[in-house]
Structures are given as C-alpha cells and as structure tokens.
C-alpha cells in the first residue's frame, strides 16, 4: 500500500482548479433563460449540476477546517442560490415533468445536504409512472438516473445490476476496444456505482480487477492524445479503484496533467483548445467559448485530485481483490 503522502502537488491541482472556478462563477450562473422553452440546458443547468457534483465530493473528502472545503462549500451555496433554494428546480419539474435532468441536478445538490421537499414529492409522483421508468436512455445514463432517484428517496432495488451488465464497462468489453465514448461511459458508470467516489465498495470485485488491469493503457493513450478532460475522469476512476487495490498513485500521469494546465490553474478539454485571451491577438476566443472549453476538464481535474490526495492511509478495503499480478516491477 502506498500511503497518500507526498500528494501535495496533486492537491494543488484541486486548489488551483477551484480557485479558477471561483473566479468564473458567472459562467455557472443560470441566467434569464433558465426556464425558457428554448433555453440551452447544456450551457446552463449542465455546468451548474457538474459544479455541484464536484464540489459535493470535494467537501465530502476534506475536513471542515480545510480552505479547500470552505471554497467547495461556498461554491455549493452559490449553486443552491442560483436555483433559488431549489425553487427553480421545482418550477422546471412542473414545466418538464418527464425530463430527468432536473432530478439529476437536484440529486447533486441534495448529496451536499440541500433539500427541497416539494421537489422531491413531485419527483416521486412522476417516478411512479411506467413512462418515467421506461424513459429511453443509454444504460450508463440510466444508472445515473437510478442513483439520482436513490438520493431523492425513490428506491428500485435490483435495477442497477441489470442495467450495469448492459454498459461497456459492466460487460467487461475487450480493453483494446476502448475509445473516447467508451471512456466517458465507463468513467460515469464508476461514478454512479460509487456515488461519485464516496463509496468505493460500490464497485463489484470483477470490475475492480478489470479496471486495475486496464486503466494504465487507457490513461497512457488519452494523455498521449492530449485528451485532458477524459484523462482527468480516468484519474478519478484510478483513485477510486486504488482505494480497493492499494495501487500507487500514477504520478507520471499527474505530471502531464499539471503541465497541461493554463497559468490560472484551469485545464483545457484537450491540447488543441485555444489559449487564454490575449488582448493583442485579434483571433482570441470570446469569454463564453473559453469557459465552455475549460470548465468541465477543470472540474474533473479538481475531482480527481481530491480523490487522489484524500486517499486513506493503511490497507485498502477489500484486500485480496487484486495483486494476483503484483510485483511485476514495470513502472506505470
């Protein structure tokens, strides 16, 4: 077992990332069209939900006296205020009762302790319909909705395992069939199964072994391809898996991510993304575009860095699931 000592440089990634996020609160603000019929949910509710989800995890894994904890809580307060204490989510639920995204955003905030009873009551009524339960979504997304339902007190025992076997990860796909979309699907399956890294025991043992075996080549190739966003998600998965296996921190990968950051701590989606605005350059992207090309990967870097640096010392939970190939000696 490698204790999470000497992960200060990795933790710094989270500190810098959330500091950048804090300066970009306006990018996460819902705006006037949050409830509009033609509002762009992918650039309004989605970033806000992701901010809440990551900050909930950061707050969970840091002590109350930790400045990082304080920043995450402050950002969560901001996110909750943006929803008007959940009231905008309740109104959104009335406007689009069969949409799953209000529930998913609400669940992210609820995981940080914010509740709006009227929203939950309304969600429960809709969730009792066959139509809601049979909403056609890909299995990975469906797992996320099931996790969100759980958070809101809607329980469907036995559904998640059935859904899991239909995912790329749960079906133990040949690891060399990995591509970008499979990567994003598998990271989210892990996030849903482990409640965004809070409960590493949510991963079945066969998935722990599978992920421990194959994360290194996936991470290696995503980093080589400059896919910083997906690399961050894979590093988060690696940190979750390491809680079960005790595998060492992939320091080379973290060095690459650190080097990919912009001067203010933000991480581009990929290495082809535009550099920060320079007043002398007429071709610079506008501020909104820059935000969209950085906010998600920056949040994921913070998420992964906190999961990595907050790893508990001592023997991993579920010892024995791994190390059948231990001690091969080839560095990661």
């Amino acid at each position: 077992m490698t204790a999470p000592d000497d992960t200060g440089d990795i933790r710094q990634v989270a500190e810098d990332a959330l500091a950048w996020v804090d300066t970009r609160r306006a990018g996460f603000a819902l705006g006037e069209d949050a409830l509009a019929v033609d509002g762009e949910v992918d650039s309004s509710w989605k970033p806000l939900g992701e901010l809440a989800q990551v900050c909930a995890t950061v707050a969970h894994h840091t002590a109350s006296f930790d400045p990082l904890h304080a920043r995450a809580r402050a950002l969560l307060d901001f996110a909750w205020q943006e929803t008007d204490g959940g009231e905008l989510l309740r109104r959104l639920q009335r406007l689009e009762p069969f949409a799953t995204y209000p529930l998913e955003v609400y669940a992210a905030l609820a995981s940080a302790g914010f509740r709006h009873p009227a929203f939950e009551e309304a969600a429960a009524v809709v969730a009792r319909t066959r139509g809601w339960r049979l909403t056609e979504q890909d299995p990975t997304r469906r797992l996320g909705v099931l996790r969100a339902e759980e958070r809101c007190g809607i329980h469907r025992p036995g559904q998640a395992p059935h859904m899991l076997t239909r995912t790329w990860l749960g079906g133990l796909s040949e690891p060399w069939t990995f591509e970008r979309d499979a990567g994003y699907a598998l990271t989210h399956v892990v996030f849903h199964l482990t409640d965004w890294g809070r409960d590493a025991d949510g991963l079945p043992p066969d998935l722990v072994t599978y992920l421990a075996d194959w994360l290194p080549p996936w991470l290696d190739t995503c980093l080589e391809a400059g896919m910083w966003d997906l690399s961050g998600e894979l590093l988060a998965v690696a940190a979750i898996v390491a809680r079960r296996t005790g595998d060492p921190v992939p320091r080379d990968a973290w060095r690459t991510i650190r080097a990919a950051r912009r001067p203010s701590g933000e991480v581009p989606l990929q290495d082809r993304d535009p550099a920060p605005a320079d007043p002398v350059d007429a071709e610079v992207p506008d501020d909104g575009r820059y935000f969209l090309h950085h906010y998600h990967s920056t949040l994921m870097a913070a998420f992964a860095a906190v999961l990595t640096s907050a790893r508990p010392a001592g023997p991993p939970a579920g010892t024995g699931a791994r190390h059948r190939h231990g001690g091969q000696g080839a560095p990661a």
């Binding site: 690891p175 060399w176 990995f178 075996d213 194959w214 290194p216 080549p217 996936w218 290696d220 190739t221 080589e224």
Partner: peptide
Amino acid sequence: RGFVRAVRR
C-alpha cells in the same frame, strides 16, 4: 497492457 496500448495507437 502494452497490447491494449498498441491497438489504441
């Protein structure tokens, strides 16, 4: 792992 990496590359 090297096989997986080589196929991906």
